[in-house]
């Protein structure tokens, strides 16, 4: 199948991250949760970095948080983003204390370290829904 989407796409079949992308297709933000020590972790890893347990599940996590930091791209290093300059990419800390990377949408003047954001899922292809973050205006 062909698509006109010309930006990089994640590998939705990645053995670690596959379940995350399956959940985003259903509009859910998730993280791994260690079945032994209960530590939440993201992005996905094959074993728990806290206790090395191999026993892992996925749980839904909070879709709200604040901007930990951000960068404003004024030059597109990937041609797919050329039409969207300048665009904002942030690391968001959700209310579970997990850090997620994502585009930030909403008024540019409201983008700031500490600004509250909520998650949004954009179906960019039939297989891929990218979580992005919306800042309140």
């Amino acid at each position: 199948m062909t698509t006109t989407y010309d930006k990089p796409l994640p590998d939705v079949d990645d053995p670690d991250m596959g379940p995350f992308w399956a959940a985003t297709r259903q509009g859910r933000l998730t993280a791994q949760r260690c079945a032994d020590c209960t530590t939440l972790r993201f992005p996905a890893t094959p074993v728990c970095g806290t206790c090395l347990s191999e026993d892992t599940g996925w749980v839904d996590v909070s879709g709200t948080g604040t901007i930990w930091s951000y960068a404003v791209y004024h030059r597109a290093f990937h041609p797919g983003f050329r039409g969207e300059l300048p665009y904002v990419v942030a690391i968001v800390e959700n209310t579970d204390g997990l850090h997620y990377t994502g585009r930030v949408f909403g008024p540019r003047s409201a983008v700031a370290v500490g600004a509250p954001v909520s998650v949004r899922f954009d179906a960019v292809t039939p297989q891929v829904s990218l979580p992005s973050w919306v800042v309140a205006g």
Binding site: K7, P10, V89
Partner: peptide, 8 residues
Amino acid sequence: YFAPWGMT
């Protein structure tokens, strides 16, 4: 991990 969001 970052590329899909334009963190390139």
